[in-house]
Design a protein around this nucleic acid. Structure first.
Lengths: 175, 175
DNA sequence: CATTAATTTCTGTTTTTACAGAAACAACCG
DNA sequence: CGGTTGTTTCTGTAAAAACAGAAATTAATG
């Protein structure tokens, strides 16, 4: 229940990082707590452990569930909802990337496509159209590729990154 | 001076995206403006174009400069500072990744190393140490690899991503 | 060196976001 | 079906961030 010092440090830092990346601090803290705990916790216990209001926990858990970063589980003989997260860091990373893509990248792609499809694009300054086009292409390449990568097994991905690094080194010699 | 509709849409959306990723809206807007304009602009012009206070522009430009996303240039016969950004989207991406690494990833790595080096780690719950260790390793692998990737020329990187995707497809058959 | 132009820093306000606590709601149990 | 436990929603407050405008500072010019 009471946090041990190192877990506390980890959780506080994670909350801080969340803030910097546009994630509510409490949301990030709860996720870090569940991750470190590695076991299901009920909302009350989470609230007490982190020293935040019960309602705050409720809303934050809903947010985490919308990212599929937390799920409800039930313990035998206990009426309360318990919440857990994956302890597989690769899986967590994938969920976060996927969530961000859906929420932010996809809408951005729509906007850029819309801009380029709009006849009024002709009225813009020279170069503007070109740069919007390049931006769209860039985002599309990056997302396609990251989707491919994230579909891999972690071990394979590791290997692929090794290959990537090797290509990198090989090419740099010629750079 | 007056924004044309599509540029305006792009800039507003970019500002919105900035907010969601922990970047001040005005900062993101100014960057988008300089990017689309593709020419140096002075602070006054930026303020008028975006309809924000001159002081806001000044601070935001300082922020952009700290990311190396904007630089001062001088125009012949004009006392005022003018600001420009790269129109190379790959270069911009690199600068942003690099900035985030320095500001957020590196400190996180320090914290995690610190946690693992602390003798008190023994007092933590079973599994906690393991997960912190995995988290650190994960971040280290990812940053090392991304550094390698970003060192490549864009064209090479494109090629490498093609290879990555190919590996991905090849392996998936066996998955 | 006084004047003007340009920029930055400071201060207070506004806006936004996060949050606590209360109230409402729902599920369950004897 | 009344009491109990658990959860969500609502409402107001507090904290944080963004921002405008004024004041101060710095640099350039005649």
């Amino acid at each position: 229940m009471e946090l041990k010092p190192i877990a506390e440090r980890f959780i506080l830092h994670w909350g801080e990082m969340g803030s910097r990346w546009g994630v509510n601090r409490t949301v990030a803290q709860i996720h870090a707590l569940l991750y470190l705990a590695g076991r299901p916790m009920d909302a009350e216990e989470i609230a007490l452990t982190l020293g935040v209001a019960r309602s705050n926990v409720s809303n934050s858990l809903k947010e985490l569930q919308s990212w599929r970063l937390a799920r409800v589980v039930h313990l035998m003989g206990d009426r309360r909802d318990h919440f857990e997260t994956s302890t597989d860091i690769w899986e967590l990373f994938k969920l976060i990337v996927e969530g961000r893509r859906q929420r932010e990248i996809d809408p951005t792609i729509s906007v850029l496509r819309d801009c380029l499809g709009n006849p009024a694009i002709g009225d813009e300054d020279t170069g503007t159209e070109q740069r919007i086009k390049e931006t769209l292409e860039f985002i599309e390449v990056l997302t396609t590729w990251s989707e491919e990568m994230l579909r891999l097994q972690p071990e394979t991905l590791m290997k692929a990154m090794g290959v990537g690094a090797k290509i990198s080194r090989a090419v740099r010699r010629k750079d």
